[in-house]
Simulated scan of single mutants.
Amino acid sequence: MTSEGARIVGAGRAASKSRQMEWAARAGLTARAVVYLLIGVLAVLVAQGRPAEVDQKGALAEVISHPFGGWLVGLAAAGFAGYALWRLSEAAFGVVGKGRAVGPRVQSFARGLIYAFLAFSAISLLQGSNTGQSTQQKGYAAAVMAHPGGRWLVGIAGAVVVGVGVALVIEGLRLTFMRNFSALPARVRTLVTQLGRVGTTARGLVFALAGALVVAAAWTYDPDKAGGLDGALKTLRDQPFGPVLLTLVGLGLVAFGLYGLAEARYRRV
């Protein structure tokens, strides 16, 4: 590496550890937490029969329909962009507590791309786009499956999401998410532990179901089954005892949102 290249890399590494990046990370974690709180509440309402799109964009659409909602969605977009920037900086320069290990950096890269897309979705909502996230995902799945080998790609993507969901369930049950925190007051640690256990497990179950639906879409060549988070939750609703199950999952996602607020405050970044 040339001296100029080393200087650029050094500057990038310093920026990834800066106070400004820390605030970007905390803003992003806060935005994520608030959105999951809203998704959880919407899931409970859908279980009671209210029509709504139960995913990140649906939650933001609910916000924008209220006074000052546009400003709040704009703040969420900025938060998602900050989260994406933080995760991509981790992918480039290493993850706190895990150094430059490849696995965590790949995870951070994927999370960065996802939240960059969410930032774009929030901005498109501000610009008047009414296309739901679930509809977009079905359209993407249909476009990919129209190409040779596309069904395999969609199926593999779904299997990866299932794997992420299973990993989150294991993380929730084993409480490994607590490694993101250093010193916490005893009462706060107990509350964060319980909220994280319930919330992370619920989030993992929803991810696993969403991924399974994507695999089913590829298997049956039916992109309408690839409905993402919204499709997963509404599939759950349509099962025996579905409203009860969806209410429990919604409350679990609310727990994840509350845990996320604590993470935004106390996480090591």
Rank of each mutant, 00 (worst) to 15 (best):
E4R: 12
A6T: 00
A6Q: 00
I8Q: 01
G10K: 02
R13T: 12
A14S: 10
A14K: 15
A15Q: 07
S16F: 11
S16W: 13
S18A: 10
R19Q: 03
A24Q: 00
A25H: 09
A25F: 05
L29S: 07
T30D: 03
A31Q: 02
V35M: 11
L38Q: 10
A43R: 06
A52V: 06
V54G: 01
V54N: 02
Q56A: 12
K57F: 01
A59N: 14
A59S: 08
L60T: 00
E62D: 01
V63Y: 00
V63W: 04
S65N: 09
P67L: 00
F68Y: 11
G69A: 06
G69M: 09
G69N: 03
G69C: 05
G70C: 02
W71G: 15
G74I: 12
L75A: 15
A77N: 11
A78E: 10
A78N: 08
A78Y: 15
A81D: 07
A81N: 03
G82A: 13
Y83I: 06
L85P: 01
R87V: 07
A91P: 06
A92Y: 08
V95H: 06
A101T: 03
V106W: 10
V106G: 12
Q107T: 04
A110F: 11
G112V: 09
A116P: 03
A119Q: 05
A119E: 01
A119R: 01
A122F: 07
I123R: 01
I123A: 14
L125W: 00
G128V: 05
Q133P: 09
Q133F: 07
K138C: 02
K138S: 02
G139T: 14
Y140N: 08
V144L: 10
M145W: 05
P148E: 13
G150E: 04
R151W: 03
W152E: 15
W152R: 06
L153G: 05
L153P: 01
G155A: 05
G158L: 08
A159K: 06
V160P: 02
A167Y: 14
A167K: 14
I170E: 05
R174M: 03
L175M: 10
N180C: 03
A183T: 10
A183W: 02
L184V: 08
P185S: 07
A186Y: 11
R187H: 13
R189M: 12
V192Q: 10
Q194D: 09
V198H: 09
G199T: 09
G199S: 09
T201F: 08
G204W: 07
V206M: 14
A208W: 12
L209G: 12
W219C: 09
W219F: 14
T220C: 00
D222P: 00
G227M: 11
T235K: 10
R237H: 15
Q239K: 13
P240Q: 07
P243L: 07
V244E: 09
V244I: 10
L248N: 08
G250F: 09
G250H: 10
L251C: 12
L253N: 00
V254K: 11
A255W: 13
A255R: 01
F256A: 01
L258K: 04
E263R: 15
E263S: 15
Y266S: 04
Y266E: 07
R267H: 06
R268F: 08
R268N: 14
V269K: 07
